[in-house]
Simulated assay, not measured.
Amino acid sequence: MQETRQAARQRRHRRRLMVGTTTGLVVAGLLVCLAIVMQPDRKGDAARAAATAVANSEESGLPSSPATKSATPSPSAASASPKVKKSKSKKPKASASPSATPSPASPQKAPGTSSLAGRIRGKVTYPGVATVYKAGVGDGACSYGPSSDMMIAAMNTTDYETSKACGAHILVRAANGATVTVRITNECPLPCAPGQLDLSEQAFAKLAPVSTGRIAITWSLVSPSSAGTISIRYKIGSSPYWCGIQAIGHRNPIARLEVSTGGGWRQLTRTDYNYFLSPNGSGCGKAIRLTDIYGEQLTINGVALRPDVVQSTGVQFARH
C-alpha cells in the first residue's frame, strides 16, 4: 500500500516536471517570436537603401551602378549615323546701284582685270604666216554656225587658247601692204604654229592669189566701228538643270561669262567649242554678265532659256 502511494507521488512529480518544461518551452518560443518581430527588416531596408542610392545618383547626375542600365544611349550609339550640318558660305549680294547693269554708253570696269586678255592683246603686232583653207559655209570650232560674211579665219591652237580667241576681229597685213580684217570662227590645229592664221579662200584672196598658199604676215587685234549688238544662245539640250551659254557678235573678245545665282555672280567655265557651261543648272535662264578683255562689263537681263535660239541683247562693248 505504501509502495502504491509512493509510485503515485512519483507520477505526479513527473507530470509537474513535464508541464513546467512545456510551459518553459512555450514561453521561450513566444520570446523568440517577439524578438524576431521586433528586429528591423534587413532585406527591405537593403532594397530601400539601394533604391534611395539610385534615386540620389539620377538626381545628382552621378553614374549608376554597373548592374543598372542607363536610359540614355552611349555617345557611340548616338553617333553611329551622325548627321553633318554643312555650313554654307555667304555669297556676295549683287549691287543694287545703277552701275550693276551698265549700258554701252556708260561702261562699267571690272575690278582687277588688268590682264584678262591672255595671249592676244590690244595694240600689239604679232608676226606670223597666213595659209588658206576651204571654209565651206563658215562654221568651225567656235560653234557660231554658218557665216554670212566669209571674211573669217582659223586661229592656231596656241593662240586659240581654249576658244578665247573666238569672235576676235584681226587685222592682217601682208608684206605687199595689202590688208584684210577677219573674224576668228575656227581653230587651226597642229602643225599650225603660234602666230599662224589659216584664212578662208575669200579672205586670203584679199592679200595674194589663193594659189600662193602661204605668205608672211603681221596681225593685230582691232575693235571695229560697226559691230551691231551682242546676241546670246543657249546650247541644244539646255534646261534649268544644265546649260551651255554662248555670246555672239561681240566687238571685243570675251574674257568671262557669269550668271546670277540670286545671291551673287558665278563664273562659268569655257569649253574649247566656245560655250560656257553650268553643269548643275546654276543661273540657267537668269541674268548674264559679260566681261571683255579690257575689263568692261555688260549685264544682260531677260534672256529666255530657249535652246539653240539666237536672242539679241541690244548691247555692245565700247571701242578700243
Rank of each mutant, 00 (worst) to 15 (best):
S238F: 02
Y133N: 06
G44R: 14
D41V: 05
V54N: 04
V210S: 00
S226P: 03
S87L: 14
H250R: 00
A135R: 01
K69Q: 10
S200A: 09
A255R: 00
T218G: 06
K90A: 14
V172A: 05
R15E: 14
C188V: 05
G20N: 11
G228D: 10
G314Y: 08
S239E: 13
S238Y: 04
G249Y: 12
Q196E: 06
T291G: 01
V84H: 08
T261H: 08
A7Y: 06
F276S: 02
Y294T: 01
D149L: 10
A49H: 09
T72A: 14
Y273H: 09
R16M: 15
Q316A: 02
Y273S: 04
R266H: 04
P104D: 02
Y126Q: 02
P107L: 13
I36E: 12
S74Q: 06
L257E: 00
H13Y: 09
Q10S: 06
S60P: 05
Q39P: 01
V303P: 00
L298G: 04
L199Y: 03
L116D: 04
S65A: 15
S60R: 12
K134M: 07
A135S: 14
R9Y: 09
K86C: 06
Y294Q: 06
L197C: 04
A208R: 04
P253L: 02
T291N: 03
A50D: 11
D308V: 06
M155H: 07
A135K: 01
G262H: 11
L298T: 02
S200T: 04
N186H: 08
E296L: 05
P104M: 05
R121H: 07
R12Q: 12
T21L: 15
V172C: 07
E59D: 13
S223R: 04
T22E: 14
G262S: 04
V309R: 05
E201C: 03
G295Q: 03
S95Y: 01
S74P: 03
Q246E: 02
I248D: 02
